[in-house]
Design a protein around this nucleic acid. Structure first.
Lengths: 149, 149
DNA sequence: GGTGAAACCAGTTAACC
DNA sequence: GGTTAACTGGTTTCACC
């Protein structure tokens, strides 16, 4: 992982479909070593995969809700069960165990407030072991950046 | 945007480097119409771009901090200035204006707690207009999923 | 909209510095 | 670990259904 590797990652972060020609030009090397470096980073796990950035609004998932969750018990078993339940709810995009006033923060993607109300009623409120939850709607996204390299 | 388009997006979400052969096989069409559908989704903006998933730990950005921020004033000017300031801090990966008890939620990527302390002292505490901020460390990531299609 | 083949270009390998 | 050149395979275009 030297400076050239990081530069390659920068180019791929901006456009994972960039050709080796473009990449090699950007880093000042020929195509072959660039290709080798990328393969090595794929194998070592630095590059976990290639994805697309999607327009959530165009897919009827324009609303984001951040949900703070506090559980009744903090046993290993409760934590594990909660994780498994969340895994089965596709609208839950991210889930973090956090330090502080509450236990978990979830990022949920829904079509609109009505859709969120349905999810809350039919799925989230039915999860056993939740002591308390608090929902905040995202009104505006100010920033959504790549990792700094 | 029909069922086939969504299936194509699913395949690309899992692997944006999938060849047209793989994609066309997955959706049951030949390569040409798949290619045309992808191009149309790129042009219409449904597909915003192609990126890589990176291993943050391997890049010395293993710690994630969620910061709740409350501003002094809620004027348009304050909001805009705050957004501009955040844009200049590379460690701030996401920033949302939210409804509820506080105004903004930031997701910050740092090497470790020491690195976060430095960021807090040198950058975040120096931002004018912040009334209050509260940091929560991410102890564990339970889920990180693609948008449901 | 779809198919299939031809043309073109990019990814991959190998031989060498 | 780097370069250039040959090879292989995928992307893009085109003529047709």
């Amino acid at each position: 992982m030297d400076k050239i590797d990081r530069k390659i990652l920068q180019v791929l972060q901006a456009n994972a479909r960039a050709s080796l020609q473009e990449i090699s030009q950007a880093v000042g090397l020929s195509a072959t070593p660039c290709w080798g470096r990328i393969k090595k980073m794929e194998e070592s796990g630095v590059i976990e995969g290639y994805t697309i950035r999607l327009n959530a609004q165009a897919l009827d998932l324009g609303d984001t809700v951040l949900v703070q969750v506090t559980l009744d018990s903090h046993s290993d078993n409760t934590l594990e069960k909660f994780g498994e339940t969340l895994a089965g709810i596709p609208e839950v995009i991210e889930a973090y165990l956090v330090s502080g006033d509450y236990d978990y923060l979830l990022r949920v993607a829904v079509k609109d407030t009505k859709d969120y109300e349905r999810l809350l009623r039919e799925r989230l409120y039915k999860i056993k072991g939740i002591r308390h939850s608090k929902s905040s709607f995202v009104l505006r996204t100010l920033k959504k950046a790549d990792l700094p390299l």
